[in-house]
Amino acid sequence: MAEVKFLVVLPANPDESDRMSKLAIRGSLLQEPQQFSINFVNSPSCTDNITYHFKVKVPSQTIVENYKSNGEWSGSHQEKYLNIFDGKSDVKWSSNPRIIDGKFHYSFTESTFSLEFQFDYDNSTIIVYQVRGQGHNFVTKFETLFSLSEIQSIQVWGDVQKINEFSLSYD
Results as ranks from 00 to 15, higher is better:
2 A>F: 02
3 E>G: 06
3 E>W: 01
7 L>A: 15
9 V>F: 00
9 V>A: 01
14 P>K: 10
16 E>R: 14
18 D>F: 12
21 S>V: 06
23 L>A: 04
23 L>C: 01
23 L>K: 00
24 A>N: 12
32 E>Y: 12
41 V>A: 13
42 N>V: 03
42 N>Y: 03
43 S>H: 14
44 P>N: 10
45 S>K: 05
46 C>Q: 12
48 D>K: 06
55 K>R: 15
56 V>M: 09
57 K>I: 11
57 K>F: 15
58 V>T: 04
59 P>S: 09
60 S>K: 08
60 S>P: 04
63 I>P: 01
63 I>F: 11
68 K>D: 00
69 S>C: 11
69 S>E: 15
71 G>M: 10
73 W>V: 03
73 W>G: 01
79 E>M: 11
83 N>T: 04
90 D>R: 06
94 S>Q: 10
97 P>Y: 11
105 H>F: 12
105 H>P: 03
106 Y>I: 05
110 E>S: 13
112 T>F: 13
112 T>W: 08
116 E>L: 14
118 Q>W: 08
119 F>M: 13
124 S>F: 06
127 I>Y: 02
129 Y>P: 06
129 Y>G: 03
129 Y>A: 07
129 Y>N: 09
131 V>D: 02
132 R>M: 13
132 R>I: 15
132 R>V: 15
133 G>L: 11
133 G>Y: 10
135 G>R: 14
136 H>Y: 14
138 F>D: 10
144 T>C: 15
145 L>K: 14
147 S>Q: 15
147 S>K: 11
150 E>G: 00
150 E>I: 00
150 E>L: 01
151 I>D: 12
152 Q>M: 14
153 S>V: 04
158 G>K: 03
159 D>V: 06
160 V>T: 02
162 K>I: 05
162 K>C: 10
163 I>D: 04
164 N>K: 14
165 E>G: 05
166 F>A: 11
166 F>V: 00
166 F>W: 05
167 S>G: 12
167 S>Q: 13
170 Y>H: 06
171 D>I: 04
